[in-house]
Amino acid sequence: MESGIGNYLFYLFGFIIIVSGILVVSLKDIFHCALMLVVCMFSVAALYVLLGADFIAAVQVLIYVGAVAVLMIFAIMLTARVSGAGIKQQNEQVPIALITTLVFVAVTLFGLGKTVWNVSTRTVPAEGTMKLGKLLLTTYVLPFEIVSVVLLVALIGAIVIARRT
């Protein structure tokens, strides 16, 4: 994606990500926030395609858009009577949080501008998914197994926590 169209797509999806992200944290209705979160995550998946990470983009759509967003919407539906009009959705820390966030962005962007990155000129190989699968089952097989156990524990833990006793 070294051509000019890739640049324009980056700016387009970056704009969508930032606008939908701001809407996620600022909209009154929490259900609309969940829908904006879906838009944001789709755009992040598009960025992964631009970066040559096709498998990560597919996983992003499957896990975040398919599972996490649906789970969020389920939770919003199950906790009714909290998203109507007139209920304050933000606490009294908005001004100080805004200042902190802007300082964080300024410091981070300043640091990014000062750093010299060791950028490689090569591109991502086309058969990336195959290499990724081989890496996951050879070099990274121990973290892979541990993280699957973590997922299983989280699954059982969620069932135990949310169960009616």
Binding site: I18, G21, V25, Q89, N91, A97, T101, L102, F104, T108
Partner: peptide
């Protein structure tokens, strides 16, 4: 994007909104 999420964690009252 990280800063936006950070702002949301600091200011949201709804627990589901904080998770988002």
């Amino acid at each position: 994007l990280f800063a936006i999420g950070f702002f949301g964690v600091l200011t949201r009252r709804n627990a589901v909104g904080i998770l988002m």
